[in-house]
Write a protein that binds this DNA or RNA. Structure first.
Lengths: 277, 277
DNA sequence: CGGCTGCTTGATTACGCTCAAGATTAGTGG
DNA sequence: CCACTAATCTTGAGCGTAATCAAGCAGCCG
């Protein structure tokens, strides 16, 4: 929530805004693939690991980070059971992580946008419990964990930032638990869209209009709903003027009401009639 | 799952086993209140922070850890909005953590047994997003975070263990997300009981029989169910011979079937008739 | 262009919630 | 120590939300 500020770069090249409805490669991408860009020049600077460490310290960090060639849609970054060698920071594109429950069915545990770190849940066992798949063309920074750990021991600011990132992840997960345990289907979808909205915003993209890079199925899975329900909700939201949706492109038309819906409980609310088809 | 081993101490004094049905102060307690016991002698040694660090390093850790006088049932360890000064390790007793959702209703985010760390979600903001309340008479170790952080920079094993603990927390949360998103009410309760069972087991208590220190309400809240549902489930589980329950005391009678139930999906299962009324 | 996968829409079912009342237990003070 | 009250838990009846089942529709691939 805090660190807006110097997203100037991303903001300058990024916002696709109303680029038209015809298909485009998939918009919310800061395409840095070709650039040989160091952390210090990266637009994700203050969302990612570098945040809050000095320039000299940053140089040490840059030395251990590798770039990986871009992943294509559906490519795995890692699979459950893989040895964890490195953490990954999304540089552009988006990634979905999902776990397999005891009985072997998929549970989507998160969607990850540029600047977000992947693989934190693998540190404890040294084995990835989740799969990570690219939702679109995606590039990532690979950060060998042993070297990161070693560096964190020498650079207090880095250690602190890693603790912070992991802590934030725990907080996010707790928030999602609340969503799943207590909220109605409309509240879940609304909260999900608002989360995307604000995360896109932090990255310099439009908070109103953005592309969903994940399928309805993934959304439903993530939110603990059936695909049909998600589909119906989009229709209802659109009918009630909350948003407009065309395939993957979503525009939030009434932010205030969206927040109301996201806060709304299963049923009983003191004073507020929930929209209903 | 890993580290059984030298739980000898806890095991020796702990297991209440079938102590009789009449009320007792609340059993799953290793009462160390009065003892001036250092980490090195603590029975929770290899579940808690000390795990995997050398004896000399342990001494440095012990120096920064404070004991707090025992909390009583209902006492707050911290409240949402409190500044985070320290992490806490449960030494004996049990603690419930809960968050307030946007609309101000409680969501129980976890129950914490001896050896478990509290407050990890507060690191990122420096403010506790959750409340922590004792479920029974409980004592905790207080670990000032700034000093812990500083020490972790000097003691690689400690840093690593902290990363591991936070990572494990993330994994646990993901597991709970799956539970909430995908599982039926029976599966949720079964999984919850099995989680308690195995955690009690790790601490040297009986895996079959234990006391629930939390109310039905807390369980329901945690699992995203209504109290009435939880109550009915206990009744059904008992009727079907899965467990026997008397007020707070639970005995799991059929572990195998409990695992089956915990793994079971909302509905469709290939070959296994779910017990029903 | 055909087959496919992903999305939408409709009809029906059912799981778990709500409401309501009663039964136990725990907590409190005389 | 017992009486009284408040809180927690259990049980029942009815209902509502979202799942399931079942087609149809649209975009996307080779």
């Amino acid at each position: 929530m805090s660190s807006l500020g110097y997203l100037g770069y991303a903001a300058a090249i990024a916002p696709p805004q109303a680029t038209g409805t015809e298909r485009m490669p998939s918009s919310n991408i800061v395409d840095l693939h070709g650039l040989k860009q160091a952390c210090s020049a990266c637009s994700l600077h203050d969302l990612c690991i570098p945040m809050g460490i000095t320039n000299e310290e940053l140089e040490s960090l840059e030395k251990i980070i590798n770039r990986r060639r871009p992943l294509h849609r559906g490519d795995y970054l890692y699979r459950p059971g893989d040895r964890m060698e490195a953490l990954y920071a999304v540089r552009s594109g988006s990634v979905k992580t999902s776990a397999l429950s005891d009985d072997g069915q998929e549970q989507v545990t998160g969607f990850h946008l540029p600047g977000e770190l992947l693989g934190l849940d693998a540190i404890s066992e040294g084995i990835h419990p989740c799969a990570a798949r690219a939702l679109e063309t995606t590039s990532v920074c690979e950060i060998p964990f042993d070297r990161l750990e070693e560096l964190a021991g020498r650079v207090p600011g880095l250690q602190r930032q890693l603790f912070r990132i992991m802590s934030r992840e725990i907080q996010t997960d707790e928030h999602l638990m609340t969503l799943l345990a207590k909220k109605s289907s409309d509240a879940r979808l609304a909260a999900f869209l608002l989360s995307l909205s604000s995360r896109f915003g932090e990255r310099g993209f439009s908070r109103q209009e953005f592309n969903l890079t994940m399928s309805r199925n993934d959304i439903a899975n993530y939110l603990g709903l059936a695909v049909e329900t998600v589909s119906r909700l989009f229709t209802r939201f659109q009918e009630s003027g909350l948003l407009s949706v065309d395939r993957k492109l979503v525009e939030i038309l009434d932010m205030d009401r969206m927040h109301q819906v996201a806060g709304a409980q299963t049923v009983d609310e003191p004073h507020s009639d929930k929209h209903r088809g």
